[in-house]
Design a protein around this nucleic acid. Structure first.
Lengths: 342, 342
DNA sequence: ATTAGCACTCACGCGCTTCGAGTGCTAAAC
DNA sequence: GTTTAGCACTCGAAGCGCGTGAGTGCTAAT
């Protein structure tokens, strides 16, 4: 549905004023906000019309107007202009993320932290899923007499390490044997196929050696499970408690959702490319019906990877947040791409 | 200050009833809770006395009584009896923690998760500090053409790994050289002494090789920093929002405190051995003035290590929580001790 | 289509009242 | 001296009425 130019101007002004001040705005106040040279009565007529069309809400008869979810949607689709990020903010994001140039999950955790601090909302990142990855190689590090570390390197560049402990003494010869035997039988294997059952049959094939293997194999199983799972990192959930838009009840809902990484990763991974904004109920999760989600997906080496998102109140400063999110996403995916050599 | 037997009985009943139901309790209701055969008037006299002595509070003149912080304190010091854990709960804790038999920080994160789920409060764990640790050995794993992983093993058994990327190709020869050179110069070195400055002088000594070293050295610096820091793991902070004792305001305070890992680790590490309970202001942190903290320290191989704590409302079920905390603490420290071979 | 003018609406804050749980006190009983 | 019955009292919670004012909706004129 199309709106007249004047209606758009008024709707935009209501949305931006409400985002800025958090209070319903009336016809007179609106006039001074916009450059429009009409009377307040005209504005009132337009407002009444916007209410009847569902773009605005009046909390009660004699209050000003606030945007409805439909109003926010129209604003985001047609009216808002993303704000250029200042060089200072860009440099800050660059620097912070670059300092965490470690494994992808570390980089993404840091990205979430930076974003949540900048935005004052909650930030969430997910690591690339390794569902379709294969074993690239397996390495061992002896860490003690009876303890060692398995390092699993996957075809998509992820590195997962897992400690293990065994009853016998870990000699270099033993480790070398493990290394040979396991790489022979595992390299190229899809992670999905590494299951408890598979390991048992594999172990049997090693004959005598298999007695020494069980702890190592369990560690590999666990490492491959970890490599397949997407890790979800949430930062700044507490921020939401300090936003006036949230009362105890709605904060509960959102924070509960944020602390359930199962639900969260499912939700974040169901969206497709590009930056998207879900206003309230659009997200399809009742826990988020009073919140908005800004979500973008990043790619590593032109393959879909994970998601980065901001969750906060409907009354969010989309103008600024969207560019911040996109910039941080680019930083993080570039850095990860570099580290994974793709 | 000592209380008469009857006063103790009454105080105990008020505390336990308030913990159970969360509402002020009056003289009549109290009578039916206890087996005491006196009249309500007598109880009223005793209650009045307990109020004037500061053990109880009446929210207003014509309401029942609730425990004051001093009342909780007396209850914990003299009246309460820890409840035996059921075998089911013990087995549950065992199993869950045992499944996470990986690096200490993983085990502790899992411990926090289990505790928060059992208690319905927030659980926090800290890893042992590696402040006085030394380099035990350094290992390398080649993960790609240009990327590798440094594994730092410290004298106290911690294992930290860090990825790095370098411009040149990582050949096995190069890695072997790194291994030799770095272990020669770092083994036995206190982690504290590994600083940017120290590394620069060290690097200089390697002559030509030093050009290849910078990325590796930075990775080592970062790994040693990580090994020295205690990692704080918080789980179940959101639980607090669902407890009737917390309103938005006090929840804000606690959750803000919980999301500041700096403050948190400082707070948790300042307490000494044994299980301790801080009631409200006793903790000395205004953010916790409406909360109670149950904290215990664990040891690894009879050396003080980290802390495990529960944070929740004053109105907490200390009887059950304290044994849970202590049992989980024992599980976690045993398991870590085993993995670190001490 | 726009505007001036005006009656109207409704949340908010304030004070009043009623209700009832639970008290504190007193005087009598043990 | 301690305990108890009895009763007046206190005070928060909930409901009601009222005045205030921001901001509206409507009408009639432009």
């Amino acid at each position: 549905m199309e709106l007249s130019v004047r209606k758009e101007k008024i709707l935009g002004a209501v949305v931006e004023s409400y985002i800025a001040y958090g209070e319903p705005i009336g016809s007179k106040a609106l006039l001074s906000e916009m450059g429009l040279s009409v009377s307040s009565a005209t504005v009132r007529n337009e407002l009444a019309d916007l209410v009847s069309k569902g773009y605005l809400i009046q909390p009660h008869t004699s209050a000003g107007r606030i945007p409805s979810q439909k109003g926010y949607r129209y604003y985001i689709d047609n009216l808002f202009k993303p704000q250029e990020l200042s060089e200072r903010v860009k440099a800050h994001i660059d620097r912070e993320i670059f300092l965490a140039a470690d494994a992808p999950e570390k980089i993404l955790a840091k990205t979430a932290q930076v974003l949540s601090e900048l935005s004052g909302m909650a930030a969430i990142t997910t690591t690339p899923s390794g569902d379709d990855a294969r074993v690239h190689k397996i390495r061992f590090v002896v860490t003690g007499r009876h303890t060692g570390m398995v390092v699993l390197i996957t075809s998509n560049g992820m590195v997962k390490s897992r400690l293990f402990r065994c009853e016998f003494v870990l000699t270099p010869e033993l480790i070398a044997m493990f290394d040979r035997a396991l790489n022979e039988s595992f390299v190229g294997l899809p992670l999905k196929e590494i299951s408890q059952a598979y390991l048992q049959t594999t172990a049997a094939a090693f004959g005598e050696l298999s007695l020494f293997m069980t702890d190592v194999l369990m560690a590999i199983l666990d490492a491959s499970k970890q490599a397949m799972q997407t890790t979800v990192s949430v930062s700044g959930a507490t921020n939401l408690l300090f936003l006036p838009s949230y009362d105890l009840l709605s904060a509960r809902n959102v924070l509960r959702f944020l602390s359930d990484s199962e639900k969260l990763s499912q939700f974040l991974n169901e969206s497709s490319k590009d930056t998207k904004v879900y206003i309230g109920k659009e997200s399809g999760r009742f826990e988020l019906s009073d919140s908005s989600v800004i979500i973008t997906r990043y790619e590593i080496g032109s393959r879909a990877a994970g998601a980065i998102a901001l969750i906060g109140p409907l009354r969010a400063d989309y103008k600024t947040l969207i560019p911040q999110l996109e910039y941080a996403s680019k930083c993080a995916s570039d850095l990860i791409g570099e580290l994974l050599e793709v």
